[in-house]
Nucleic acid binder design. Structure first.
Lengths: 130, 130
DNA sequence: GTCAAACTACGAGGATCCTCGTACAATGAT
DNA sequence: ATCATTGTACGAGGATCCTCGTAGTTTGAC
């Protein structure tokens, strides 16, 4: 009777529990915004280890948790890995267009700075947004 | 030779200096989001004293400064008062649709909570967004 | 000059946040 | 069972943030 079948469960806020202020705060950090952009560009769930971030593993865990607790991403264990996926549909139902708009704004800012912070591969990926 | 004609000048970030992270952070606070919503609903410049906020005057000044330094609002002195106006056009040029989307999200959340935090007059104002 | 109104500056308290290092837990393969 | 992989927990340091009170500045009216 130690631990049944459930491997490791993570708490997520219910859709109705998601607060706009928390979402905006979650997206207001450069590292987290980068994570979200990569997740959006990938269109799939990605493991934490997939990300190459300018912070340590501990800090990475922290940022993923902030995103999860704000309701921006969903996390599920898959073997030793933990898959992260955007809660795009839910967010869109709650705050129509918010995520896409922020993502577009981030792309625009990135392009303006001419930096190499592009999340996907080429900086000319955008065209189809829906 | 103490002070020429300039009454009191305030520093604002140039349009190109505005950072998405700073804007999102500025909007992630409940008090500031409320200020922005009222400003958007008013469609005019409003003095600080016009706002009835759950914080002291000192704190109000602080929040207005955060909004100004993030590039969300523009502040100008007008006699003893200080008029605040949204930098909507500039923000929209930089981050298309961002402000409107956040404003709509805030309205949606407000409506969901059934609270009396409505910025304008009636809670049924939305219809024409552009 | 005097007075009221509107806002700021400064400093402080307390909370939250970002970052890290080290130690630990869970899974899958050997 | 042993080991490597993946990610967590805990605690701590340092920065930033929100809030306030008090004192001070600028403007306009009397």
């Amino acid at each position: 009777m130690t631990t049944p079948a459930s491997p490791r469960l993570l708490e997520h806020p219910a859709r109705e529990e998601i607060r706009l202020e928390a979402v905006l705060h979650a997206l207001s950090d450069a590292v987290r915004l980068r994570i979200v952009r990569e997740l959006a560009a990938a269109r799939t769930e990605l493991s934490c280890s997939h990300f190459v971030l300018p912070v340590t593993k501990s800090t990475t865990t922290h940022h993923f948790r902030v995103l999860r607790e704000a309701g921006v991403i969903r996390q599920d264990y898959r073997g030793t890995a933990k898959l992260n996926g955007l809660r795009g549909a839910e967010l869109d139902a709650l705050f129509p267009g918010l995520l896409d708009t922020v993502l577009a704004a981030a792309d625009a800012q990135s392009a303006r700075e001419g930096a190499g912070e592009a999340p996907g591969a080429s900086p000319v990926t955008a065209t189809a947004s829906g």
